[in-house]
Design a protein around this nucleic acid. Structure first.
Ligand SMILES: [Zn+2]
Ligand SMILES: [Zn+2]
Ligand SMILES: [Zn+2]
Ligand SMILES: [Zn+2]
Lengths: 129, 129
DNA sequence: ACCCAGAATGAAAATGGTTGTCAAAATCCC
DNA sequence: GGGATTTTGACAACCATTTTCATTCTGGGT
């Protein structure tokens, strides 16, 4: 049997956008997988720690995960209706963040940058409703 | 007696960095204020909804609030050790976020941008330890 | 194959920030 | 003053996440 962590990773890869631990758990169970919620949490944490998946927090405090195609540093453009996600690079933003930190004497500068919006197909769906 | 909401707002204004609801509650109580935790939560929510204070989520999922000097759209450079916060503007970042959204057909584009680091005095403190 | 130590697993209980409930208290309005 | 309305806050409920801990793997070593 394939390693649990790999199974979780695979489920994530099969998804389009960011998914919560409970989401992943529910999907795996409905696919017939025999796995516990705790293990899903642990696998996602490990994957995130190892940089294999990206994490972000929704407005209501849930952690959501995504297996991004790019292994390099990047950010996300996320549809706030359907979750569809586009990976985007922003060299200017990287430089800006560094500069802002340095300008005020800060070291070990990191940043979080996420862009949200309504994707084209969701806009269309709303208009049609 | 001053309005509860104003009391909460004042307490926040007296603070340097971002503070959690429980923080604010504890501080007000130790200052002798007669107020309930629920009310502090409600006041902070109302202030945030009205754009009077800024909110962000810590890594461990706590919502933290700050009464910023600037009423205009801005971002934060936060010391991850002492919480000291600098308000920063980033016109380039604003334009970049808009452009990225538009480029992929997204509408109603918003963004979250936060910069973290270790401030000069905390760096000094660490070095001295 | 057998044994055992250490790692992985997961069901159930605990945690903890946040929100809901609802009765009491303050405030408004006539 | 008196009734309607809003605000308050003690307490209980929520719910994602973490911790516990007993059980189940796993991978040598013999
Ligand atoms: Zn969409
Ligand atoms: Zn970046
Ligand atoms: Zn500092
Ligand atoms: Zn901005």
């Amino acid at each position: 049997m394939t390693n649990r962590r790999d199974a979780v990773h695979d489920t994530l890869r099969r998804s389009e956008g960011f998914r919560s631990a409970q989401d992943v758990y529910a999907e795996m169970r409905s696919d017939g997988a025999k796995i516990g919620l705790t293990t899903v949490y642990r696998a996602l944490q490990a994957l995130a720690d190892g940089g294999k998946v990206d994490v972000l927090r929704t407005d209501d405090g849930e952690s959501v995960y995504r297996a991004c195609a790019s292994g390099d540093h990047h950010h996300h453009l996320v549809c706030r209706r359907c979750g569809r996600t586009v990976e985007v690079a922003g060299p200017d933003v990287e430089r800006w963040a560094e500069a802002v930190g340095a300008e005020h004497g800060f070291t070990d500068v990191t940043h979080t940058v996420e862009v949200f919006g309504t994707c084209a197909s969701c806009s269309a769906a709303v208009r049609a409703s």
